[in-house]
Design a protein around this nucleic acid. Structure first.
Lengths: 206, 206, 206, 206
DNA sequence: CATGAATGAGTCTTCATTCAT
DNA sequence: GATGAATGAAGACTCATTCAT
């Protein structure tokens, strides 16, 4: 499928290339099925056929349904953690207000970029395996934030990790409400502004 | 469901009593199974037998599995919304700092009282039907908060509903992290203090 | 299915009665499918439908396919071991020639009574789980024979267990050939006679 | 299968050499997989990869899974039948005691040489196709023994074929018990002696 | 009303086999 | 010829739901 015949090094790449394309197709299909049918009706067969392949092929790339779901979730969470990481590093030694808006921006930017994906994955993250994964990535993000906070020139945090926990919670909570559609989409602008302000306020006041 | 009619005729009492007890047993059992087996393995048979009855009896009280799950979730969410409602009403006309701690207190008090229940229900809330329900209750809570905010003597909110959205997000986000065990349980004390301060800071600064 | 409405104690028996009948139906069906389709095509669905029930019902009685197959095999082997046991006990203190014909008779009697069953189960016994089971029952039979041999008035066996092993092998080997149809069915008479004589000869000569 | 033509043209040699080697590799791999995974998990892919080749290549040598399994079984049985044949021919005109030990020796020698192989193939022989094959080879062996018996100088067999059947059964039964590990390996020595004596006794007494 | 056996649709997963490269 | 990805039929097993007792 999708035999993107590259002009360069046409020999060995195909294997890699096809794999990557296939995996991507599966990810996309998984999210589509998740969105359109919900987690419990997101079956391997359905995902495979939405991805334009047979079940058998799906199992060539993922050992089982959980692995597929976890894989998709992991990719999503990793992208966000990476972005947050990068933002947290860039914002080191900046005033806390800038730190706040840096991570809010990084987090929202990705989350709101693919709202469907984000929303669909909440259910996956809530299941057994998903929660485990969440925990791991969550810690990564907390650490990134904590380390950033420790460099703040205009404030000293007695317990940066704990503060980071709250900061991350402040990010995730309202964002989820936004993605679930509880907060009307018209508020997008304000949403980001307020979140930054809210977070900055907290960080300054600790 | 099955609103066994008014408590007028005393002859019906026993029946209703039994019903209520049974429904309660089912709720408890559901949560236990949810905790021990996870959502996907939370089957009607398992719930029924954990509740000490037969599947058939379960279906006397709930028309199907989804209704059972929704029922449990609804009860949980309603309790919280009620508590929040009450707190929001009590805190009217108080300074925003008091408002903040009032709703934080009300929310946390219930959520942390049955952490297992709360945690188990995240998965239920993430599925189709659960999300619908969440939306409804969420709006209730937002409204409660918004109306409270409108009475604040020390601040005027240009858009109380929007502010309420953020406020609620601030409550849910960190709390979820806490319940999932991402934030170590040792922080319980600090957690509530910081959450109140965080929220108060925001409400004062809007 | 097969509501053998007994006249006596109609209340609680049904559960037992139905179970027994159902299990029996499953055993019979299993053997029929084994005979007609072979082990690899002996699927749970096929067995269930041959037994006149749904797959689900089958799984109410056996946790999985292996358990079903093992169950059928076990019943078969146990019947034989029981018969052999009894024969071996009866033949204690008898001359070895009588011992020989006693166990040959007991073994053949059952094996040849249901040749289809016996034959069909060879494949089951050859698979993983079957072999384990075989080992257990085999030891039982060896012990029964060995203990019988130890009481022989006209011979002393230096190692009755080992002799019993060979004796049992002498029973199983030719019998299998017979059941598989390698030895023409016309020889039934002679078969038993020769087997007894063969065994007696060995036991006398040790 | 695929009887790669005679060794006349030397140009073909390499090809044939490769074929033979490949087939051998497949046989070995099949037995290894059989031993380690059991018959039902002995898949073409697994066998191929254990043999260091791709599934596709396997299908170059065998039209399907059954053919592979049958091929391996056939080779095994043929080796034994050949050995028995040879022994039976060599023992012609010898006293029955010598005949007995000749065929016992020939049979056991091969069977015990590769106990894993022998044991693994019992399951294959028990399935549909295997049983057919068994029948064919079994007849060959019976005939070989019968013809040998007919030349015995010290006994006259009224029905040499029938006697051969029993004789062969006496070989296979205890041997299987031995290979399955039911008879402790320590008895190897005695096993052969007793088997010979047992068989000789029978042949003399007919 | 309670019970729990029966049902069978629907899942996940495996594997023999093919065929484009 | 070799390769191994793709296919999809088929099998094991589960579970929501019903209904006879």
């Amino acid at each position: 499928m999708k035999t993107t015949t590259a002009p360069l090094s046409p020999r060995k790449m195909p294997v890699q290339r096809r794999s990557v394309a296939t995996v991507e197709a599966l990810h996309t299909a998984t999210i589509q099925v998740l969105v359109s049918e919900g987690l419990s009706r997101c079956t391997t067969t359905r995902v495979a056929s939405r991805a334009g392949m047979s079940v058998g092929s799906l199992y060539q790339y993922y050992p089982n349904r959980d692995a597929l779901l976890s894989g998709v979730l992991e990719l999503h969470l990793t992208k966000i953690a990476d972005a947050l990481d990068a933002a947290a590093i860039s914002a080191r030694d900046k005033p806390v207000a800038e730190m706040a808006s840096a991570i809010v921006q990084a987090y929202l930017c990705l989350k709101l970029a693919n709202p469907d994906e984000s929303k669909a994955l909440y259910a996956v993250a809530a299941e057994r395996d998903g929660a485990r994964l969440m925990g791991v990535i969550y810690q990564r993000m907390v650490n990134a934030i904590a380390q950033m906070l420790a460099t703040a020139p205009d404030n000293t945090f007695p317990d940066p990790v704990f503060t980071a926990h709250l900061a991350l919670g402040v990010l995730t909570g309202p964002t989820k409400a936004f993605l679930e559609g509880f907060i009307p989409p018209g508020y997008t602008e304000q949403f980001q502004t307020h979140l930054s302000r809210l977070l900055a306020g907290y960080l300054q006041g600790v």
